[in-house]
Nucleic acid binder design. Structure first.
Length: 142
DNA sequence: GCCAACGTTGGC
DNA sequence: GCCAACGTTGGC
């Protein structure tokens, strides 16, 4: 099982928004090949951190992948009429007892290699098992 | 609001 | 195929 991190601007879609909707959220709008490829690699049941970019700049919750990559309903086809942009669906799992801020992540040597830090513009990125476990502990989870 | 990083586009 | 110009993301 792989772990992931997905960014959202909370004024567009916050973790609470996803919870309030009560239905799986189609993670549409990604227009970056690396991010798309990461979504294609996701398996059902895998978990992702939900990160608030721009406002807050912190990991606030965990979501679960409930639909494999499928065509992004908001995307245009390319000139050949092919699907280029895809997305997964997620559902909320839990809100972190203590959100983990970007500042704290940056100040933690064990997390210095995270894609969140190294590739700051990548909106869907992998998280290593060790990073996941540490972040969960920092967030106040078992 | 600014700007660095970086991905994409298009001229050559 | 190179690279300058441009657009976007996201931290500051």
């Amino acid at each position: 099982m792989a772990y992931w991190l997905m960014k959202s601007e909370p004024d567009v879609l916050s973790y609470d928004d996803v919870v309030a909707k009560g239905v799986p959220e189609e993670w549409h709008g990604v227009r970056n090949y690396a991010a798309r490829n990461n979504m294609r690699a996701m398996q059902l049941g895998e978990k992702a951190f939900f990160y608030h970019s721009n406002i807050g700049r912190e990991i606030v919750g965990i979501v679960e992948i409930v639909a494999l990559a499928h065509p992004d309903s908001t995307a245009e086809l390319n000139q050949k009429g092919e699907v280029v942009w895809e997305c997964v669906d997620v559902r909320p799992v839990l809100k972190l007892p203590r959100p983990v801020t970007l500042d704290v992540i940056k100040a933690t040597p064990e997390l210095a290699e995270m894609a969140l830090i190294k590739l700051s513009r990548l909106s869907v990125s992998p998280v290593r098992d060790t990073e996941w476990a540490l972040l969960c502990r920092m967030a106040g989870l078992d």
